[in-house]
Nucleic acid binder design. Structure first.
Lengths: 344, 344
DNA sequence: TTGAAAGCGCTAACAT
DNA sequence: ATGTTAGCGCTTTCAA
């Protein structure tokens, strides 16, 4: 660890005072002779000087990086979301630290605290928890939290911002589509519905059934402790398997996300069923959905638009200070081959 | 931004000096009366005091977070790698900031600088660049860089650590397997081979052909400016399409990674070919490979073991200071249905 | 056992 | 146009 040059070293090398160097660093070059400026820049260069951001932060300069906390980086949906947000922020010269919680509330809390400690002002959080009490200290300290994929709740802190799709509507579309294709026995595969968004998706499924006079059959909603991400394949498979071995098995599945949909199809295949005879709808519109066979019908989240909304809320500061800003985007149904076949 | 309690506020509330509070914060409780200790803790509690990590860092406490820089979070391979590393670090009570470069050298440099500025000591970097000159300033300042998926190069700085698989061997296995299945016309689809690891994979492909007396046909190695990640599907598809329309088309493809393999299969399907007649081998063993149909034959990287190696190099500090530590792991071929069919 | 004081690297108000 | 100075919140000698 070679000694690092400080602002004083630069000042000394350039024969000026630290304040002059500081002025140059803080875009106050106008109050400086060109010649002085040159000397200082030269000194910086030759010492490969970098301002110590920790010291700057201690003086009150915010860390411009955005914190992004997701439940599972291994799930391609969250990877896509991170990539979209990265692109939108990069266009504004901003960077992102991505944090992975594995749906562990304790890790979620710890990441919020670490980002807070690092002086980060804005955190986009896809939380697994219905309550946000654990965010109180950071929010009180002025950290702006934007909840992603979590529609506004009555008990939320008033400073919380929300960016989400209408999950209920999305699941309704998926289910309605299957019903229009002639399906009556439709399973909903999700696993533990701890998150608000999953509860909303389930509500949309229930409403579509109700509107079409189809009774809700609990047996078609297998519950397991946790599934939905890349490595929870075994759980999704167990759930689908349970449903397949029913006396009166379903003819279609609404999956809580694309990864579960993939697992569902794989399970069908392994069970020797003809996938073409079974309709599957995913959720999220992961890029993979269009690459597999049969291509996956799914509910699309407009990630680009949502990423731009986050930019507006953070970089541009829109919505901040207003009583509450809750942005709900419309999902769209992307129909592909996996729901092609109509049934009687 | 409500006012935050400082160590002085706590000291005042407890009727002691800041040093006493500091002693308590730094596990020096022994030099303190139980009664004093109690009063201080009470004051902390009632003021919901949190030590300012920025101030602590300025005093020299390192930021315990690990920086992880990847080329594309949208590519499930990198998501898997991040998840494995997260798990390994979490087991040691450590956290990770994940950064996405989209293979943009400038973004890569900027993230290294930001992490450095945030006081982070260890960075695991999957670089797109053959040269590492842009890392010099950070490395000189003592930031430990661990290159992932980039075998050691002659010109690398001596402090650099490497964790990688033997990419040449992996691609050799993939190609050799296809040859054993009777294939002679084997395409290699990769896109721009800017990274060391891709060059090594290509070398393995070339060696396998040579060892089996099969001449290298440039036409079977379509090059396009960039592909290999989640959104570069169109480029991969163009490359595969080019190869398919040859007078003497290939019967098999070695893809530079699983996403390209998926795109290749999709292209075949769209072109009306029977996928079962065409062999495809991927690279990386993404979880998706086993979910699709036909399941994908691929080259597995032992991510868990590699993550543990990174823990040893960073948390435990192994290998640091030694002239050079370059860990090369063996890949394994995972044979699945996509290369099932033997040909004459 | 506790407190006083100096300083980490930087900024900005206030001199000059 | 440039320099002097007083901190930001914390840790750590050193002194009491």
């Amino acid at each position: 660890m070679r000694a690092i040059a400080t602002i004083r070293d630069v000042a000394q090398a350039a024969g000026v005072s630290p304040s002059t160097v500081s002025n140059l660093l803080n875009a106050r070059e106008h109050l400086m002779q060109p010649e002085t400026r040159r000397r200082v820049l030269e000194a910086m260069e030759s010492l490969s000087y970098r301002p110590n951001r920790v010291a700057r932060q201690l003086r009150g300069a915010p860390n411009p990086t955005l914190g992004l906390i997701v439940p599972s980086v291994a799930n391609p949906f969250w990877g896509s979301w991170a990539a979209h947000l990265e692109a939108a922020f990069h266009a504004h010269g901003r960077q992102i630290y991505l944090c992975n919680t594995e749906r562990d509330p304790e890790r979620e809390r710890a990441y919020v605290e670490q980002l807070w400690a690092d002086g980060i002002e804005h955190i986009v959080l896809s939380t697994s928890l219905p309550s946000l009490d654990h965010l109180r200290p950071a929010m009180d300290a002025g950290v702006q939290i934007i909840a992603f994929d979590r529609e506004h709740q009555e008990t939320d802190p008033p400073e919380l911002l929300n960016v989400s799709i209408d999950n209920e509507a999305g699941a309704w579309m998926a289910t309605q589509h299957l019903i229009e294709q002639g399906h009556r026995r439709i399973a909903f595969v999700s696993g533990a519905m701890r998150t608000i968004s999953r509860q909303r998706r389930f509500a949309g499924y229930v409403r579509a059934l109700a509107e079409n006079g189809i009774p809700l059959d609990e047996a078609l909603v297998p519950s397991s402790s946790d599934l939905g991400d890349a490595d929870s394949g075994p759980l999704a498979r167990a759930a689908v398997h349970a449903v397949l071995t029913l006396d009166d098995p379903p003819t279609a599945v609404v999956a809580v996300n694309d990864m579960v949909a993939l697992s569902a199809s794989a399970t069908l295949r392994d069970a020797g069923r003809d996938v073409a005879e079974f309709a599957v709808v995913g959720f999220d519109d992961t890029p993979i959905g269009s690459l597999i066979s049969p291509a996956l019908t799914t509910v699309r989240q407009p990630l680009r638009e949502m990423a731009e909304a986050v930019v507006r809320l953070t970089v541009d500061g829109a919505g901040v200070g207003e009583p509450r800003s809750s942005l709900v985007f419309p999902p769209t149904l992307v129909v592909r081959a996996s729901t092609e076949r109509r049934i009687a």
